[in-house]
Design a protein around this nucleic acid. Structure first.
Length: 229
DNA sequence: GCGACAG
DNA sequence: ATCTTGTCGC
């Protein structure tokens, strides 16, 4: 099995090492579990980070919402040094250490974690959400604002409409219209959750705005945490 | 070689 | 991600 602490101690020093880590850890992703059922009782946690390039500082936030009411029930932040440059396909190495610190500050174990980015929809099928899922063992999904390098046809105009997000002929995620007449978000599976439920949870979390409340809350909190550092 | 490229 | 005011529209 993989050890979260060992992975953090053996952090890659360059891009080729990082890709090797992804190729090794991807085998631990579980795609055979449906994940929490829609309407489940528990907490959904949103995670996000903000950067201060001038000081090389990164602030992460984890915000826990009641999965049914979407009320905020817990939150935590962490601050760290940037541990990796931004390279498309290697985003996780930039965000994960500080995100793990923030998650550790929560009172309860999350039942589902929503990441800002991708899971399976990744050049090596191991995006941020999958990586975080494998290191924590928690069910994770990724909800991104852009289609990255993938192709899609616009989903229908109504809220809830979806279309496949394609890497060639392979469906790596879904474009999901969370609000009528608004650009879709891009959902992919991270770890221990199926795509249907990943989309259902995202739609429930995005009842009022384009982005899930988890992402909005975490985004807002990590910006405040960065500003007060 | 060139362009594209989650956050 | 981040730099950043006003402004168009419901």
């Amino acid at each position: 099995m993989i050890s979260r602490d060992d992975e953090l101690r053996h952090w890659p020093a360059d891009e080729s090492q990082a890709r090797a880590v992804q190729d090794r850890l991807r085998r631990h992703v579980r795609l055979d579990e449906p994940g929490p059922e829609p309407g489940f009782e528990g907490t959904v946690v949103g995670v996000d980070v903000a950067y201060d390039d001038a000081r090389d500082v990164v602030a992460a936030a984890a915000v826990a919402l009641d999965a049914r009411t979407l009320a905020v029930v817990d939150e935590a932040t962490a601050v760290g040094q940037v541990s990796f440059p931004y390279v498309p396909g290697l985003l996780a190495f930039r965000e994960i250490p500080t995100v793990l610190d923030a998650l550790a500050g929560l009172t309860r174990t999350p039942d589902l974690v929503v990441c800002d980015g991708y899971g399976l929809a990744h050049p090596r099928r191991f995006g941020l959400a999958s990586h975080l899922g494998v290191l924590t063992g928690l069910p994770t999904i990724g909800v991104a604002k852009n289609p990255f390098t993938f192709r899609y046809e616009p989903p229908g105009p109504d809220r809830g409409a979806t279309s496949p997000l394609l890497d060639g002929a392979e469906e790596v995620g879904r474009a999901l219209r969370t609000q009528k007449g608004v650009k879709p978000v891009f959902v992919s599976v991270g770890h221990r959750v199926g795509l249907d439920r990943a989309c259902a949870h995202t739609l429930h979390l995005a009842a009022a705005y384009r982005l899930p409340e988890t992402t909005r809350a975490a985004d807002s909190l990590c910006r405040r945490a960065l500003a007060s550092t």
